[in-house]
């Protein structure tokens, strides 16, 4: 399938497996696939073939940057939590046959890795010590706060905030409904969740203030704060809805929006650039564009006509973008030229 390139040099691969998740760790960008492989792309040599890691026997379900430089952690439906080294070797850190490892995360500063299986989130420290955190319902997502002190675990009817260094009971942020992906604002004061309903819910930790963000025509699968936390970019609409978080927060304010694809195609994934206040947005029609909250100007990267974009990751310099789709097309866009 040909993808019309609009701007930026693009290297493309047709890998034929569902692109599940993407992550960045230094110059290496990784993508996990439905065929159980994790592929490592060197952002400094965009045209080089990726290193193939046979990480899981079934499908990969989750991927994140590891605490080790250039490494990644992945979870799969083979019940394994796997550590992938920069050279491409894979090591199983935890395994339970018949279970699914659906969420993974790691925080280099805190030196912890974490993953979730069913209702239990498990924290692994550098020494390999395990701590199991039980919840009343299945875990919907994991995120360590930017300072590396707390782990947010979403579930039915709220979020549990656990201290990584203490066995104290978690603080519970309550809100009715099923909470999925969590996101911490860069200053650590807001926790926002994408919900099963077409909505987001948020809490400001300093004063316990709630915020509801609704009006989406579709399910919000993916959310991302811009690098300094001025905006929260979201999927689930036919343009990129960005909630303002500077000053007093988004309460009572209208979101700004930018970008659109072919008629009716919803934004399916977003990725915040690490150097500039810009957002890459992937759409259900296969198109990808880059834009800025509050500005009408966008740069088209890939034109419509491909399968839905499922995941993206920027390199740390913010000038290379890895894009994956449901049908397994992978593109590495280069903005350096």
């Amino acid at each position: 399938m040909a993808h019309k390139k609009i701007q930026g040099n693009l290297a493309s691969w047709e890998l034929g497996a569902y692109a599940v998740a993407a992550a960045e760790n230094g110059r290496l960008l990784a993508m996990a696939f439905g065929d159980g492989t994790v592929r490592l792309f060197d952002s400094e040599t965009p045209d080089a073939a990726p290193v193939v890691v046979n990480a899981h026997k079934g499908a990969c379900l989750a991927l994140a940057a590891d605490i080790d430089k250039g490494g990644f952690v992945s979870g799969g439906d083979d019940g394994k939590f796997v550590k992938i080294a920069a050279m491409g070797s894979a090591e199983t850190l935890w395994e339970s046959k018949g279970k699914w490892v659906e969420h993974v995360t790691a925080h280099a500063g805190a030196g912890v890795r974490a993953f979730a299986v069913g209702k239990v989130a498990t924290i692994l420290n550098k020494k390999g010590e395990q701590r199991e955190l039980a919840h009343a319902s299945t875990v919907g997502g994991l995120a360590v706060n930017p300072k590396g002190k707390r782990l947010a675990v979403t579930h039915y009817n709220g979020v549990s905030l656990w201290w990584l260094a203490s066995t104290a009971a978690p603080s519970i942020l309550e809100w009715r409904g099923s909470h999925l992906q969590p996101a911490w604002s860069p200053d650590g004061d807001y926790v926002i969740t994408a919900m099963q309903e077409n909505a987001l819910h948020g809490w400001r930790l300093s004063d316990g203030e709630h915020m509801r963000m609704t009006g989406y025509p579709g399910k919000v699968r993916n959310i991302a704060f811009t690098r300094k936390g001025h905006f929260l970019a979201t999927t689930g609409s036919d343009s990129v809805i960005c909630w303002p978080f500077s000053g007093s927060g988004p309460m009572g304010k209208a979101p700004s929006e930018f970008g659109s694809a072919s008629e009716g195609a919803l934004v399916s994934t977003v990725a915040a650039n690490p150097k500039l206040d810009i957002i890459a947005a992937g759409f259900e029609d296969g198109s990808v564009l880059v834009g800025q909250p509050g500005s009408a100007n966008t740069i088209g990267i890939i034109d419509a006509g491909g399968s839905p974009v499922t995941c993206m990751a920027w390199n740390p310099d913010g000038d290379r973008l890895l894009v994956g789709t449901e049908a397994g097309a992978v593109h590495l866009a280069d903005f350096r030229g």
């Binding site: 569902y18 079934g58 499908a59 379900l61 439906d77 699914w100 319902s137 409904g177 099963q196 909505a199």
Partner: peptide
């Protein structure tokens, strides 16, 4: 329960999750 204004609208959260997982292969 879905908070969509429909009082009897309950769904199986685990099915939504599992089907999303199965669709990856």
């Amino acid at each position: 329960e879905m908070n969509n204004g429909c009082i009897c609208c309950t769904v199986r959260g685990d099915l939504i999750r599992i089907i999303a997982g199965l669709l990856k292969r």
